[in-house]
Structures are given as C-alpha cells and as structure tokens.
Simulated assay, not measured.
Amino acid sequence: MPIISSTFKAKGLFKSGHFSTIYSAKLRPIPKVIQERKRLELSDGDFIDIDWSFSEKKDTKVAILLHGLEGDAQRVYIKGQAKMLVENGWDVAAMNHRGCSGEENRLYLSYNSGRTEDLEELIDHVIQYHKYDTICLIGFSLGGNVILKYLGERNHVPQQIKNGVAISTPLYLRGALEQLVKPENMVYSKTFINDLRKKYKRKMNQFPDAMNSEELKKIQNLLDFDTLYTAKAHGFQDAYDYYEKSSSLQYLPNIKIPVLILNAANDSFLSPECYPFDIAKHHKNIYLESPKHGGHVGFHVTNKVYYSEKRTLQFINK
C-alpha cells in the first residue's frame, strides 16, 4: 500500500498553489549546471537535442529528464533537478522534445503527451553507446505522462531502467484540459495557447499544404490546437481520441518497476483522476505522494533546493 504521507510543508505565500506555480516558473533564480548539447538523429529522419550534464564522480548511473508542454531542457525545474543529481553521482540526459530546442523539427508531426517513441530511441541510444548500468526516468507534467505511459504500455522495458519519477503529472488528459480552461487557470492556458499558436505559425511556413492561416485563426484554446494540429498530425481521430489513448492513468497497473508520482493536492492543472489513490493502494510499484501544497512543479523549500529535487534523489537512490 505505497501511499506516502508527505513531509513537505510549504511556508508563507508558497502555501498558495498559484503563487508557488508562478514563482517557481518565472521568478526562481536559475540553478547553475553545465549542459553539453548533443543531437540524436531519429529513425524517421527527424532529430531531438539532448542536454547532457556529467557528475565528477564518474559513476555508471544516468537520469533521463523530460520537460513539460512547450518547455525545454533549460527550464529552471530541469536545471534544478539536474544540479541535484550531478552533485550526487548521477549523469543527466535532459531531452528536448521535437521542436523545443530552439530549432524547428523537420517533420510535420512533433511531440505530444503520449508519444513515447522518441524516449524509446533515446533510451536505446544510451544503452548502446554509453556504459550505464542504471537508468532512471524523471518527467515533469507532460513529460511525466510520457514516462509513465512508456513504462506501462510495454511488456518489457530494458533491465537498466530501475525506477521512475513523475512530478505534477496530468495522468488523465481530458480532465487536465477541463481544469486548464477554468477561469482560475486563464493565465496558464493563455500562455500555453500563445506559445502553441506561434509554433503553429512557424510550422505553417514549413508545411503550407497541411497548415494554413484560416486554421490558425480557429485556434483559440488548447482543445482547438489539439483538434486542428495534434490529433491530425499524430494519427488520432480527434482531440478526445488523443486524450483517451495518450493518458497514462490506464497504463499504471502494468508498470513493473518502482515509480513515484508526486502530485500536489493544490495543483490547479490536475483533475481528481490524476491522484490514483485506489491504484496505489493495491500496486506494489506505484508510490503516490500528494502533499497539501506545491502547486504545479512548485515545491519550494529554498531558491537553491526544492522538495521535489531532494525527494526524487531519495527515491531513486533507495
């Protein structure tokens, strides 16, 4: 019955989910960690860029980090986690999803909440060309959904993968969408859709036969974007088909290695389905921790160290 009673206690203004979310994304000083970019050419002719950080301890452990929607491997939460890991003997491979590394990807398709093929190719590359005997998967928000789906949709995963951590993860995508369109979350949904509209416009220049300005005008919210681009580009019938097939919640019972799901109770991005207490109660590998505070990727302790960073290290080292 691995439901964890969290020790995290937010202080002052950080008890507010919105304050901790916004502060952590926009105001936290960016932790200093060295990153070395290497490009991975993919089997379909596209590419992803990986930002590597290396520990001085020359160990045989690597953590693969996945960022959230329209993020990248330079986001403060990625660098904070990477710094904590490299200082404690872990190398880090922070993956930029297709089109998120500052250069547009080559193909019409991109990334989405359930696309695990790129993660699989990165894992295969790490196993083939590096000498790691221990791999941990760590995902934030959308990236958390990707790693949980990857671990649950396959009958077997490489033996080098020992555990995983999913932080502030929308396990049920339709519910998360319905949360984001609520008035209290307007500032977040507006930010996301503005970024996605810009991405659509840039991609429209690459693929004028598949994308056009009339469709761009119709994209006013996240559901529109997933209807007019995500579903069409990635082979789904519509946005709701995408949400149903890509949600990691349905794959949790199949996970065969220990995973920690760290979702704050006051994360305004998450619907009730994103807190799978019933599954965790009956599954030896699903560890669910739901502290009262923390917002969305906002588990502030100090500017230098977040609870999620310490908790992740503790979980993967045990």
Rank of each mutant, 00 (worst) to 15 (best):
H130I: 06
S113G: 15
T21C: 08
K61H: 15
S271R: 05
D51W: 09
A10Q: 11
A176D: 03
E104K: 07
C100P: 00
N285S: 05
V76Q: 12
L85E: 15
A265Y: 02
A94M: 09
R202P: 01
K131V: 12
I135E: 01
K58C: 12
L252W: 11
K217T: 15
L288A: 05
I127V: 13
Y307H: 15
S5Y: 12
Q250Y: 00
A25F: 07
R174F: 01
I255A: 04
I261Y: 01
L177A: 10
G17F: 06
N285Y: 15
T7W: 02
S141Y: 07
K190A: 09
V181A: 02
S268C: 01
D241G: 04
D224M: 06
A239W: 02
S101D: 12
V165G: 01
N221W: 05
N317F: 06
R311I: 11
F207I: 03
L262A: 00
G175V: 03
Y108D: 06
K318S: 14
Y306I: 08
D59H: 08
D241Y: 06
P31K: 07
S110V: 05
P29D: 02
G99R: 02
W90M: 08
S55C: 12
L270F: 13
V187W: 15
L151E: 03
P170K: 01
S141T: 07
Q159M: 08
N263E: 13
Y229G: 06
T7H: 10
V33N: 10
I135C: 04
I48V: 15
G80I: 08
T227H: 06
W90P: 08
H234L: 09
V33W: 08
L177N: 10
H283W: 06
A94S: 15
T60A: 11
N163S: 15
Y129T: 15
Y243T: 02
A10M: 10
S55H: 14
T312M: 11
A264Q: 01
M204T: 01
V33F: 10
A231K: 10
G99V: 01
A265T: 04
P2H: 12
G295T: 07
P272N: 06
M95W: 10
L107M: 13
G294D: 13
R197W: 01
K245D: 02
K57V: 04
I193E: 00
S6M: 02
Q159P: 08
E121S: 09
Y23M: 00
A73L: 10
I138G: 12
F47I: 11
Y287H: 15
F315Q: 02
I167M: 03
K292W: 01
K9W: 06
T227Y: 03
F236D: 06
L69Y: 04
S113W: 10
V187T: 05
Y150P: 14
I64C: 07
A63M: 05
Q220C: 05
L40N: 02
S101H: 04
W52R: 11
S6T: 05
S271K: 06
G294H: 09
Y243W: 08
I219M: 05
A231W: 07
K284N: 14
P276C: 00
V187M: 06
K15S: 04
N194H: 14
G12Q: 07
L288I: 09
S246E: 08
K304W: 11
L107W: 08
Q81I: 13
G99A: 05
E214Y: 04
S20A: 11
E36N: 07
L313V: 11
K15C: 04
K281W: 00
H67E: 14
A233I: 01
W52L: 11
F315I: 03
K79R: 15
L270S: 12
